[in-house]
């Protein structure tokens, strides 16, 4: 017998590739340290998740919703620091394929 797949309407969820490989397997996933909304959700000022509300990676390995972080950085109290570890914020270059297993 030969089984040939002609068409497969599969269902998948997308996740942000946060670099923490495979640790999010079926867990609730990480949340943005500023708005406490999951990464795959969207920041409070957005309505659509995904490309419309992307993430931002810091050199310090912390990840936030980009909108959340920019808003934080925009305030004077932030002193341009990462809200998690108070190191000054440097946006990391995303190295494509770093986490591809």
């Amino acid at each position: 017998m030969k089984v040939a797949v002609k068409r497969w309407n599969a269902v998948a969820q997308w996740r942000w590739d946060t670099g923490h490989a495979e640790q999010d397997d079926d867990s609730e996933g990480d949340v943005c340290g500023i708005c406490r909304v999951p990464y795959e959700g969207c920041c409070p000022s957005c309505k659509m998740p995904g490309e419309d509300c992307p993430l931002i990676w810091g050199e310090c390995t912390h990840v936030f919703h980009m909108h959340c972080l920019l808003k934080w950085i925009g305030t004077a109290a932030s002193k341009q620091q990462c809200p998690m570890d108070r190191k000054s914020w440097v946006t990391a270059e995303r190295k494509i394929g770093t986490t591809a297993s």
Partner: peptide, 15 residues
């Protein structure tokens, strides 16, 4: 590049 897929294998249909 910044997204990956997690399949929900029990959903969908196959022809």
């Amino acid at each position: 590049p910044d997204k990956k897929l997690k399949w929900l294998p029990h959903l969908g249909t196959a022809h």
